[in-house]
Design a protein around this nucleic acid. Structure first.
Lengths: 147, 147
DNA sequence: ACAGAAATGTAGCCGTGTCTACATTGAATG
DNA sequence: CATTCAATGTAGACACGGCTACATTTCTGT
């Protein structure tokens, strides 16, 4: 069944690869969203409480607790019982990377005529699938358009 | 952010709303990917076999079987045991919508300078979060750029 | 026609992310 | 200081999407 088949075997292989990469990106999305959110809360309020995280993410507090547990497991955050949540160096680095990428994505969407409100909403899902190469292309295009 | 220490209720509410919408979009992504893939296979081979679906998606065959079961549950596909999988009218409509959107996203990425290979990979994840409003903006921008 | 290979089905496990319900702790107020 | 209430922790259920292992059916080649 290898050589006879009707059509383009190599294109099919790359399809599986693309889907696989999309699944990987998706598994990182939750970590990215939470680190950025926690970083935002710390900047604004000085600390990130579970209740605030949950409200901001639109989930219940046990869900936020589980997410923070995963962040700790992955070395992105630290937390002591009944205290706020804080980010490690790795977590802060991720938050900054995510924030930058989010802004670039929103800017690009707006630049091609997407209404700002829709840009914000869609960017929340899109950003997690923007690779470094694509991000650089976005930045280059935006700066060239501005300049 | 604001000078008042705590409340910034409206911004926070919209954040939760954005994340919620991103989660909803993600839950539809699997259905969209499978319907498009099945439609592709039917066009190319005349039918969509579980084995082909699984190989194309980069998953094992029981995973593909489960996905098809969900498609049937959602009224997007029909299948009889040991036979190929077929799409309902709703499934075909979804496949066409997804295919169009995929093309537009890839075209837009390429148009702003993303290398075609990266555009294909990233589009696989991005497309599921492109709303109708954003899609229309993409199309308008592309046609204006071409014309 | 039949035996072996390939495809498909089925069972069951695991990790994730969501929820509800209840227990416990911490903080604020009388 | 005690009481109460908000915040947090914990337990357990569910759906999903991935996997492996094994059973069954269909297809294929001689």
């Amino acid at each position: 069944m290898s050589d006879i088949p009707i059509d383009a075997p190599e294109l099919e292989d790359t399809a599986a690869e693309r889907f696989s990469q999309a699944r990987t990106a998706q598994s990182l999305a939750l970590l990215e969203d939470y680190t950025e959110m926690i970083d935002d809360l710390i900047r604004e309020l000085g600390e990130a409480r579970i209740t605030d995280i949950a409200r901001q993410m639109g989930v219940t507090h046990p869900t936020a607790t589980k997410a923070v547990a995963r962040l700790k497991r992955e070395g992105l955050a630290s937390a002591r019982p009944y205290r706020g949540v804080f980010l490690t160096e790795a977590g802060i680095a991720m938050a900054e990377r995510v924030r930058l990428r989010h802004r670039v994505v929103v800017d690009l969407l707006c630049a091609v005529g997407v209404p700002p409100e829709a840009a914000e909403i869609d960017a929340e899902g899109i950003e997690h699938h923007v690779s470094d190469v694509t991000l650089q292309a976005f930045e280059a295009w935006l700066s060239q358009k501005a300049g």
